[in-house]
Amino acid sequence: MTTIKNRYDFVFLFDVKDGNPNGDPDFDNMPRTDEETNQGLVTDVCIKRKVRNYVQLLKGLESPYDIFIREGNVLNLLINEKRNEADKEDEDEKKAVAKGRMKMCEQYYDIRTFGAVMSTGEEKEDSDSTEDVNADGGKDKKNKKKESKKKIKGLGVVRGPVQLTFARSIDPVDAKSHTLTRCCVTNDNGNNNTMGNKNTVSYGLYRMHGFISATDAAKTGFSEEDKELLFEAIINAFENDHAAARGEMNPRALIVFKHESPLGNARAGQLFDLVKVEKKEGIEYPRSFGDYIVSIDKCQVPATIEVEELIK
């Protein structure tokens, strides 16, 4: 597979209706919000999880599309396995670590895409002990010293070529907590039929920005095929992730800027500013994607950058 040669920046719009797109465990799983503006937030980790889940369903955990960060994996065991393989192939420690990192990138799609921390600290390895020589030239057995050396444990850190921002809603969201009840009780010594709470936002259109670095892709082996799979996963992220708690979540726009050069031909912020999302006239409380107008000022896009809308 050929690694990508171009830089990419993209804008992803998605919405939620009567659901919780990303609960905050520090606040009783209420939808995440900016406390000052009441705009809704969805973390990059949340979207990455959905991408991983889609790739896992599509590719079935087979190399080179295995998933490193997933339920059931014992990460240190997987890291040490590759480290031990690399140590057997190369006695030079630095070369072994680099070789082990590349093996991880080759097997795991999410490491090749998002990067990973694969360092578990440092461990000390004791070498042969030495004995002090006393003034008479004899060995002092009471004052033995052990020389120790530090060996890097794990495989260090891989910086992924794909980086995502938090998603932020275009307008403030109305976050609510709904008490749920049921018609039966859990035991025969009470009549409390309260079941719990469901937290939702009435409606929110969220905007996320993404970046794909060609220079970092060369280090992990992130290929054109990987990039196409990433966009496919983003578009289909919610299709196999439905849950009553999340309500209705749908992708609405994926606008990709492809630079002619690996380092880019314009600043990402400059390109993002060309994508406008505005409420239609007369709409005070948006309740659907149809209440917004999304526009791209393509006349201001440099000739060395291609624009593609992947969701029509």
Score class of each variant (00 low, 15 high):
N84I: 13
E71G: 10
M104I: 12
E91P: 07
V133A: 04
E85P: 03
S63Y: 00
E106T: 09
K59A: 12
K59M: 13
D66K: 15
K95I: 11
A86S: 14
Q56H: 10
E147F: 11
L78K: 08
K150W: 05
E91T: 15
K82R: 14
E71L: 09
Y109E: 05
N73Q: 06
V74I: 14
I79K: 01
E89Q: 13
K124I: 08
M118T: 06
N134Y: 07
S127T: 15
N134Q: 03
D126R: 09
T130Q: 14
K99T: 05
G100Y: 05
N143M: 06
K139L: 09
K146N: 14
E62M: 01
G137Y: 08
K141E: 15
S119Q: 07
V97T: 10
N84M: 12
D132E: 14
I69C: 03
E131G: 01
E62R: 06
K150I: 03
K145G: 06
G100C: 05
E71F: 09
N76V: 11
E123G: 07
F68E: 02
D90W: 03
M104P: 01
Y65Q: 00
Y108A: 07
A96K: 04
R112V: 05
V97Y: 01
K94D: 11
S127Y: 09
V133S: 01
K94Q: 12
K150N: 07
K142M: 10
A98C: 02
E123H: 09
S63R: 07
Y65R: 00
D110C: 01
L58Y: 04
E125Q: 13
V97I: 15
E123L: 09
E85G: 00
R112W: 01
K142A: 15
A116W: 07
R101L: 02
S63T: 12
T120C: 05
E125K: 14
K142D: 15
N134H: 06
G121C: 08
K145W: 06
E89L: 15
D136S: 09
K151Q: 10
E71D: 15
T113H: 00
G121H: 10
N134A: 06
G60F: 11
T130N: 09
D90Q: 11
K59F: 05
K146R: 14
A98D: 09
T120L: 04
E93Q: 12
R112M: 02
K151L: 14
E85H: 08
I69D: 06
K94G: 12
L75N: 03
L75V: 12
K142L: 12
E125R: 15
Q107G: 00
E89P: 00
L58F: 03
E147D: 11
D126V: 08
F68N: 00
K150Y: 02
D132K: 15
M104W: 06
E106Y: 02
D110F: 03
I79E: 03
D140V: 10
I69N: 07
P64A: 02
T113S: 04
K141W: 14
L61W: 03
T113A: 11
L77A: 08
V97F: 00
D136W: 03
E122S: 07
E89V: 05
D136Q: 09
G137L: 08
K151S: 09
M102K: 15
Y109K: 04
G138S: 13
A96R: 04
E123W: 03
D128R: 13
D136M: 07
G137S: 08
I69K: 13
S127H: 05
